[in-house]
Simulated scan of single mutants.
Amino acid sequence: MSDLTKIPVTVITGFLGSGKTTLVRHLLQNPGGRRLAVLVNEFGTVGVDGEILKGCADENCPEENIMELANGCICCTVADDFIPTIEKLLAQPVRPEHILIETSGLALPKPLLKAFDWPAIRSRITVDGVIALADAEAVAAGRFAPDVDAVNAQREADDSIDHETPLSEVFEDQIACADIVLLTKADLAGEAGLAAARDVIAAEAPRPLPTIPVTEGAIDPALILGLSAAAEDDLANRPSHHDGHDDHEHDDFDTVVIDLPEIADPADLAARIQRLAREQQILRVKGWIAVTGKPMRLLVQAVGERVRHQFDAPWGARPRSSRLVVIAEHDHVDVAAIRSVLLDPVEA
C-alpha cells in the first residue's frame, strides 16, 4: 500500500446486542487477505468487547492493532481520544490495510463520519462503508421502530408531544447512515420475521438499502468490505435527528458496574438477569464471571431477557474477578434494585 493511499475504514454500528462484536470476530478470522486493525468504542469503562476481540488476534490483526476507547461515545471524544488513537494505528511499523470501527450501541454514526474531515486524518483515511446491524427478531416485533401513522396522528393533534423515544432515534439514525443493513440472528427470526424486519428497514431508510440476513456474524467479507463509499463526503444523503445540532447527549442512558463474588450456578445468574430485564427494563448486561471450581471464565452477554453465557478462556494469570456492566435508560436505573437482584440470595 502506498503512503499516499487512503486507508479504508468500515464503521460497524447497531443497537445494543445486535451482534457487532460477533461480526468483527468473524471478519478477523476471515480477513479476505487484508491486514486489519480494530477500534472498539465501549459505553462505560469496562472493556468487555475489546477483550473478546483480542482473543482473536493473529498475524492478520495482531493484538497491538486492536484498540479501545472506553471514555465515552466515540463521536463526543474526537479530539481527545479518536484522533490520537487513529494516529497511533497509522504509526504502526506495519500499517493496517483496513480499519474496523465497532461503535457503542448508543453511538450516532453521523457525528463520527464528520470526524473524518479533521485535518489530522482526512488525507489518510476514508469511510469505506457504514454497516448497520439490526436484531431481526426485535425489529420484526416492532421494539425499535415507531408506528409512523400513529406518530403523524399525534403530531397533528399536539405539536408538543414527545413522539420519539431515545432508542428509536438511535435506531433510525443508524439505519439512515448505513450503506448496508445486516439483519442479525436470522435463525431466531425465521422467514416471516425476516420479511417483517425488511419492511421496517425499508420504511425507515431514506434510500433503498441492501439488507442481508446473517446468523452468528457469518458473512462473506467481500459483501461488506471494499465498498469505496467515501461516506464522509456523502453526509447530505444520510439524515439524522440531530442535524443542525452541534452535539448530542447520552444522558438518556446510564451504565452501572456490579462486582460479584464467585457463583456456583450460571443458570441462577441468567435467571436473575432475566428478572432485571423484566422488572428494571434493563437493555444490556455483559461481563465475565468466576464460577466456583471452574478454571475458565464465564462470558455473559444479555440483551433484554435473552441471556447467553459460555466459558470463553482460562483465567490464567488474570485475577478471578466477577464484574457485570448493566446498561439501561436513565429513568429506569435503580442501582440498589439492580444490586439486590444480582447479589441478594433471598430477594433473587
Results as ranks from 00 to 15, higher is better:
T255A: 13
P62L: 03
E164Q: 10
A271K: 07
H163I: 14
H242S: 07
G14Q: 01
E204G: 12
L269N: 07
L209C: 08
G72C: 02
A264G: 15
P166Q: 13
A230Q: 14
R308D: 15
D331H: 12
M1W: 08
I99S: 06
Q154C: 10
L53Y: 00
A313Q: 13
A236T: 04
T255N: 09
V256D: 09
V130E: 06
Q92K: 15
P314Q: 08
G190A: 10
N41K: 05
D344K: 02
C177E: 01
D254H: 11
H330E: 15
F15I: 08
V325W: 07
I224D: 00
V46M: 10
D80T: 13
T211D: 13
T5D: 12
R339H: 14
I180H: 04
L108K: 14
S322W: 01
G105Q: 03
E63A: 05
V291C: 08
R122D: 11
A197K: 03
T255W: 08
L324I: 03
C177H: 03
L188P: 05
A195W: 01
C76H: 05
R122N: 12
V326R: 08
G316C: 05
G190Q: 12
L39R: 04
V127K: 02
P206F: 13
A313H: 11
E347A: 14
I282R: 05
D268H: 12
N41W: 05
T255G: 11
L112Q: 02
V94S: 11
A138S: 14
Q310G: 07
E305A: 11
S2H: 12
I66E: 00
L90V: 12
L342D: 08
L4Y: 07
A203K: 12
A218M: 09
G32I: 06
S321F: 12
E164F: 13
A150H: 14
L299K: 00
L89F: 05
I74C: 07
A271D: 13
I86A: 04
H309C: 07
Q154N: 11
I99F: 10
P62Y: 03
D344R: 02
A132P: 11
R278D: 15
E262P: 05
A336R: 10
G17V: 10
P261S: 06
L100C: 06
R155W: 10
A134K: 06
A196W: 04
E279T: 14
H332P: 00
I83W: 08
N30A: 04
D162T: 11
A348R: 08
V181F: 06
L89N: 04
I74V: 13
